[in-house]
Each structure stands twice: as C-alpha cells, then as structure tokens.
C-alpha cells in the first residue's frame, strides 16, 4: 500500500470514529440532562452572575 491509500483509509476510519463519538456525545448530553444526572444549563450563569462577590456556580475544590 502506498502512502496515499494509507492516508485515505486512515482518514475514513478516523472520521467514522469521530462521527460515532459525536452522536454518542449528543445522546449523552441530552439524556443526562433529562434524567437529572447533570445540569449543564446552570453553567450559563457563569456569565450572568460574574461579579466578584456573586455566589460561585461551582467552587474549585482543593483536590483538583
């Protein structure tokens, strides 16, 4: 196999892989929001309540 064929295969499978990841991710996002496992939309408040004395949306813990 020459380099161009390798490139083509590499490209195709990597893209297919990424498409699968993308759709899986969309499903994951919306299902975990719906089941109440996680609230993504609360992070919108990062912009709205951004005064230095406003309550934190999520505190940065020490163990990170």
């Amino acid at each position: 196999m020459d380099i161009a064929t390798l490139q083509a295969y590499g490209f195709f499978f990597f893209t297919a892989f990424l498409v699968a990841i993308l759709y899986g991710y969309i499903y994951h996002l919306y299902s975990s929001q719906k089941k109440g496992k996680r609230d993504y939309e609360k992070y919108g408040n990062l912009a709205l309540n951004d005064d230095i004395n406003d309550p934190l949306v999520e505190e940065k813990s020490r163990d990170l």
């Binding site: 993504y40 939309e41 919108g44 912009a47 709205l48």
Partner: peptide, 17 residues
C-alpha cells in the same frame, strides 16, 4: 450578548457541540 440582555445562553449543550 447574554450579559447585556440578561438572558442566559439559550443552550449550553449546543455550545459544547
């Protein structure tokens, strides 16, 4: 835009995608 209008971004999930 969210800050000036006082509206949180419509969909945080869409922004991720």
């Amino acid at each position: 835009l969210p800050k000036e209008s006082g509206q949180a971004v419509y969909s945080y999930k869409l922004s991720l995608l």
